[in-house]
Design a protein around this nucleic acid. Structure first.
Length: 420
RNA sequence: GGGGAGGUGGCUGAGUGGCCGAAAGCACCCGCCUGCUAAGCGGGUAGGGGGUGUAAAGCUCCCUCGAGGGUUCGAAUCCCUCCCUUCCCGCCA
């Protein structure tokens, strides 16, 4: 969230940022409630101060008339405070609904058409034959099964079977190894159900309740991404500055309702209610967050390069970047069979927007007051679409799939999927 | 699931109605002292918010001892509810 103080001092900036993001921002209502709250707060405090003073007197004098007066003061203070608190609750709720501002380098635009490709790696492979889609190949090879998944669970679920399941496990292992052994991230195995406070911390609540699955009768949500538990790992903490940046990598399934995605990507292993993801999360100081964000993006790209997948890095424009993000890149991998790019990673930096919600702070130096940390995350990478890109890029004209070199050590001797 | 114990500052931990936002120790910071190190001596160090400062500093007030409610002129301290931790028993991958 943005601090009340920041909104007071930069109301025009906040209004303008929200407009460019295409998000509503109740700035005027916030400023109105702020005045109201402070008025009542002040009244309550003034009475309280006097009451505290007189109460000390009473302890000595035991004067009955004073006692009666104190009783009345306590009542007045209490009711005044109750009003202040009610207004403050309303105010806090609105604050959670104000979108983040964005960095000066973010392209201004309304739709994805105005996103900007900042770099590309590799090129579209020429397979020498008409490439088939991953679902066509996957079903033919018996490594993907959507029909049975629909019977077992419903639409937007999938089975991976045999070498398909093995490929997924190999990718997870490979990615975790790259990030822990070579990029310096600490591996985390997080809870996959989280409470509402954590969902608020990462800004998945209150605005995006529809996007997540909730456990009936409990204050628990299936994580829409490992970002939620891992970013909240240090909620309500004050961290030592010399421990920063914290770098975590977590493998976890992600669950999403895909509300509002009706009709989109209904075919194939692309948009599912459950999918695996290896997630990168950093907690940094304010000074280093932009550099750390760029590096995290490079760390995710490294995985694509090692897999030999053609991809582009897309800077999201204001209208497409989202409520909480301060700056965001998507990594899109080329899928020859689908003849389009697939979003396999989304890397974002949030400034202190999430840290304020989750109350994650650090102390810049001895004896200095704590500051809110900056949080960053990105997929490194999301599994299904990476699998799609691999299958479609490494397919042979006979319908079998070569295993990328870097995955061979993880595939238990399988070098060609479908050969067995 | 049943029963016991407990949740206090960066950490350990004392505190059962006002003298307590809180003893003591550890850690850390500043200064003194010793030719260096260690030791020693003195001082400092919770968070949030309101008001006043252009801002920082400062000053001042309010709130916070797991969370919420209650009793009381006054609550870390008494009462109720909830959450969490831990131990014993039961169950279980």
């Amino acid at each position: 969230m943005l601090s009340l103080d920041f909104i007071r001092k930069n109301s025009d900036l906040v209004r303008r940022a929200a407009e460019l993001k295409g998000e509503p921002a109740p700035v005027d209502e916030i400023l109105r409630l702020d005045k109201l709250w402070r008025g009542h707060q002040r009244n309550a405090e003034t009475i309280k101060a006097e009451q505290n003073e007189l109460s000390k007197q009473f302890a000595k004098t035991r004067d009955e008339a004073l006692k009666e007066r104190l009783r009345q003061m306590a009542d007045t203070a209490k009711s005044e405070l109750a009003v202040a608190e009610a207004v403050k609750r309303e105010l806090d709720d609105l604050l959670l609904r104000v979108p983040n501002v964005f960095h000066g380098s973010v392209p201004i635009g309304e739709t994805e058409a105005e996103n900007v490709v900042v770099r590309e790696w590799g090129s579209k492979p020429d397979l020498g034959f008409a490439p088939r889609t991953h679902f066509d190949l996957g079903e033919a090879l018996g490594i993907m099964d959507f029909e049975r998944a629909a019977r077992v669970s419903g639409s937007r679920f999938a089975f991976l079977i045999g070498e398909g399941a093995r490929l997924e496990r190999a990718l997870v292992q490979f990615m975790l190894d790259v990030h822990t052994l070579e990029h310096g991230y600490v591996e985390v195995w997080p809870p996959m159900l989280v409470n509402s406070a954590s969902m608020v911390g990462t800004a998945n609540l209150p605005k995006f309740a529809d996007a997540a699955f909730r456990v009936e009768g409990r204050d628990l949500w299936l994580i829409p991404t490992a970002e939620v538990p891992v970013t909240n790992l240090h909620r309500e903490e004050i961290l030592d500055a010399d421990r920063l940046p914290l770098k975590y990598v977590a493998y976890a399934p992600s669950w999403r309702t895909e509300a509002g995605a009706a009709g989109k990507d209904t075919r194939g292993f692309i948009r599912l209610h459950q999918f695996s993801k290896v997630e990168l999360v950093k907690v940094t100081s304010a000074e280093t967050s932009l550099d750390e964000f760029e590096q995290l993006t490079r760390d995710a790209e490294d995985v694509l390069q090692r897999l030999g997948l053609h991809y582009q890095v897309m800077a999201m424009c204001t209208g497409d970047m989202g409520f909480a993000q301060y700056k965001k890149y998507d990594l899109n991998a080329w899928a020859p069979g689908l003849d389009r790019f697939l979003e396999v990673s989304s890397c974002s930096t949030f400034n202190d927007f999430q840290a304020m919600r989750a109350n994650i702070r650090y102390r810049p130096g001895r004896g200095t007051p704590p500051k809110f940390a900056h949080t960053i995350n990105g997929s490194g990478l999301a599994l299904p679409r990476t699998i799609d890109a691999i299958i479609e890029t490494y397919q042979r004209s006979d319908g079998m799939i070569r295993v990328p070199d870097v995955l061979k050590p993880y595939m238990g001797g399988v070098e060609l999927i479908g050969a067995r």
